[in-house]
Amino acid sequence: MNLFKKLFNTPKEKVTEEPFSELQNLPLDQIFVKNFIKNSGKFLYCTTLQEVIANLNNIIQENSWKTISCNDNDLLKLIKSLSLKTTDKLTQQFPIFLSCEHLIAENGSILFSSNQLKEHKISELSENFIVYATTSQLVASKGESLTGIKTRYQGNIPSNISAIKNYNLNCKDDDFMNYGNTNSKNLYLLLFEDL
Rank of each mutant, 00 (worst) to 15 (best):
K5E: 10
K6M: 12
L7K: 12
L7P: 04
F8Q: 07
T10F: 12
T10K: 15
V15G: 08
E17P: 05
E18R: 11
E18P: 03
E18W: 07
L26H: 00
L26A: 04
L26C: 01
Q30F: 13
K34Y: 08
F36C: 01
I37F: 00
S40F: 02
G41V: 01
K42E: 02
F43R: 06
L44K: 06
C46E: 10
T47R: 15
T48F: 02
I59M: 15
Q61R: 12
Q61F: 06
E62W: 06
S64D: 09
T67F: 05
C70V: 04
C70R: 08
N71W: 10
N71V: 11
N73D: 14
N73V: 10
L76Y: 09
L78C: 02
S81C: 11
L82C: 06
L84M: 01
T87Y: 03
D88G: 15
L90C: 08
F97A: 10
C100F: 09
E101G: 07
E101S: 10
H102G: 12
L103N: 09
L103R: 07
E106K: 10
L111C: 11
N115I: 13
L117M: 09
L117H: 10
K118G: 00
E119K: 15
H120C: 06
H120P: 00
K121Q: 14
L125Q: 06
S126M: 09
E127V: 13
F129P: 13
F129R: 13
Y132V: 07
S136H: 07
Q137R: 04
V139R: 10
S141E: 14
G143R: 08
G143M: 13
S145K: 06
T147D: 12
G148I: 00
I149A: 05
R152H: 12
Y153N: 11
G155H: 08
I161V: 02
S162Q: 04
K165I: 02
Y167C: 11
L169A: 00
C171G: 02
C171N: 03
C171F: 03
K172W: 04
K172F: 14
K172T: 08
D173Y: 04
D173G: 03
D175C: 12
D175I: 03
F176N: 04
Y179V: 00
N181K: 09
N183Y: 09
S184V: 00
K185F: 00
N186M: 00
L187P: 04
Y188H: 14
L189E: 03
D194Y: 07
